[in-house]
Design a protein around this nucleic acid. Sequence first.
DNA 1: GTAACTGCAAAATATTTGCATCCTT
DNA 2: AAGGATGCAAATATTTTGCAGTTAC
Lengths: 147, 147
Amino acid sequence: MENTIDFLKNYGLSITESRKQILALFTNSKGALAHADIEKNASMSFDRVTIYRTLQTFVEKGIIHTIPTADNSVLYALCKEACKEGHHHDDHVHFICDICDTTYCLENVTIPTVALPIGFKAKQSDVVISGTCKNCDEKKSIELQNI
Amino acid sequence: MENTIDFLKNYGLSITESRKQILALFTNSKGALAHADIEKNASMSFDRVTIYRTLQTFVEKGIIHTIPTADNSVLYALCKEACKEGHHHDDHVHFICDICDTTYCLENVTIPTVALPIGFKAKQSDVVISGTCKNCDEKKSIELQNI
DNA sequence: GTAACTGCAAAATATTTGCATCCTT
DNA sequence: AAGGATGCAAATATTTTGCAGTTAC
């Protein structure tokens, strides 16, 4: 728990129960979380509004970032490196598994530079790929072997 | 208007006022539209619910597709070629202008193939780039000249 | 002690569903 | 005429705001 506290302090945030808990949910999860996931899984129950506000604070501070999804649900995931306040630079690919519904931040897959038409200037790129993740792909292979 | 009617017929849809109007809004707009844009700009006013249902029908038929956005608002845009029912294949890049807020489908910019970690199988990729569009970039240049 | 955070209530917004009526074919 | 589409009412879901009480520092 010490880590969580120091982490929050480094971002200039005061240490509160909801911030510790919600941050812990993110660090313990390999995937992205939706508002509802947090509401369900927090070991202590927080008000909906507190969760909204905590998430917003984390986004503003650069602790987490939102992920655009094809179905336009709102997902959040930890930023890998410290994103400066108000300046996110999450140059990695997001992957959403169609089967288990987990959203991964593929930190090591960098976003390719896209050649835009003349006049268009890119500032931020988001890539969201959906398909089958490693886990589910392995499960499928095993199932096929057992037929 | 003949075109609109034939177009709808080709998709097996009956011809109704809302479908004609909403389809026309899409064909007359170079950018993507949100539910609210349609509600405001339709020359005739339709019930909110009718707009929701019409958009859903169009998405199911492959006439329009949704665009994932960083702020998780819901945008729709025409599919370039006929997407088969239930099988969208919109392999183009979406561009959202930070200044004028227009969303473009850059039909001619194809999505680069991304090398995923072992085990991950891609089915669908979405790329959303934000920045300054051609129009706004030109305006900025002119403003600078006039200083 | 003060400023910031939380929870509750409620407002505002967005989306979905049921049903009676009307329109398209 | 029959099936589907629309409009209205209302249920449901999501997000935001105001405020009083509580907590962190």
